[in-house]
């Protein structure tokens, strides 16, 4: 049996050859990085966040390593939806890897305009990931995802504008993650990504000042894996739509744990900084695990720890 059959999953309206998807914000738009043949084992790639207008992102220090972790305060730097549609979309859609357009929730009017423009190109866009979880901006971002009511408002707006597959990326800073997840499911999301970075901070003891201009920043990387796994478990208990586990995955074992907790797919961010071929090595690991146990496919793994 071919490996891409064995690892195939259907996830929130997207057919993935492997459950391993590159998370938003770590991958360049340069053409070579979207060629399917160059990155075997990847099921899909999320784009960097897109907003209505160009954003310069945050001033000052943007990244800071912690023990087995990474704090970032990029602040949604991107060139705006027009540039994305004219320049990036043609490039990334040629490579053959399914991609998911990460749309950062700003305010109601701006984000609905972004989604309206994406809707005009729907035949070219496999899915949208609505990011109601960015911790690094003052306007919108994570503020939307903290409560069930505001999350529902954002998703309800998005659902009206964008008719294609809609993934919604939640924040670990949610007051009650199960409640938020249920509210987002009710508004018609096709899948939930659990989740974005965990709010943290660092202080530079030489200057006695916070490292980041915004003081707080988002923590990612292996240090957060157990936290993310627990949250995936909680959300999988709360909803019936597919969940995509994200946070600190650095091995095929972590992928298996996310899947066994109930996730249908896994997003990987920080680990791509360590190994560009993580998709390949994780997929081989998953495949060997399945073959060694005589399992037929992903359905035999997903949610197994819950049975």
């Amino acid at each position: 049996m071919r490996s891409d059959n064995l690892l195939r999953v259907s996830c929130g309206g997207v057919e993935l050859d492997s459950p391993i998807v590159v998370a938003s914000g770590v991958w360049p738009f340069e053409k070579d990085f979207w060629q399917r043949d160059s990155f075997p084992g990847l099921g899909g790639i999320c784009t960097k966040a897109v907003t209505l207008n160009r954003r310069e992102g945050n001033p000052g220090t943007r990244i800071w390593e912690t023990p087995a972790g990474l704090l970032n305060s990029i602040g949604l730097q991107n060139r705006g939806v027009e540039h994305f549609l004219e320049r990036d979309l043609p490039v990334i859609s040629e490579g053959g890897i399914p991609f998911i357009v990460n749309v950062a929730m700003e305010n109601h009017d701006e984000t609905s305009e972004v989604l309206r423009r994406l809707e005009d190109m729907r035949n070219m866009i496999p899915a949208v990931e609505l990011n109601i979880s960015c911790p690094n901006v003052s306007d919108g971002g994570m503020a939307w995802g903290r409560f069930a009511e505001t999350s529902a408002q954002a998703v309800s707006m998005a659902r009206k504008k964008w008719k294609g597959p809609l993934w919604v990326k939640l924040t670990p800073q949610a007051e009650d993650i199960a409640q938020v997840a249920r509210a987002v499911e009710e508004e018609g999301a096709d899948a939930l990504v659990v989740g974005n970075t965990w709010l943290g901070m660092a202080i530079d003891i030489d200057t006695a000042r916070p490292v980041f201009e915004r003081a707080f920043a988002g923590l990612s990387g292996p240090g957060i894996f157990p936290l993310a796994l627990r949250m995936v478990w909680e959300v999988c208990s709360a909803v019936t739509i597919p969940v995509i586990g994200c946070g600190g995955v650095t091995s095929y074992r972590d992928c298996l744990a996310m899947l066994m907790a109930g996730a249908t797919a896994v997003e990987v961010g920080t680990v791509m900084f360590l190994d560009l071929q993580s998709g390949k090595s994780f997929s081989s690991g998953l495949e060997e695990y399945l073959l060694a146990r005589g399992l037929d496919g992903m359905k035999d793994i997903i949610g197994k720890a819950r049975q």
């Binding site: 770590v26 943007r62 990244i63 990029i74 730097q77 900084f273």
Partner: peptide, 21 residues
Amino acid sequence: ARMACGIGGCQGCVIETVEGK
């Protein structure tokens, strides 16, 4: 600059230029 990816993906290493970051 401090870098995370080295390949242009993370926007972590930007500097100010006459054409913006």
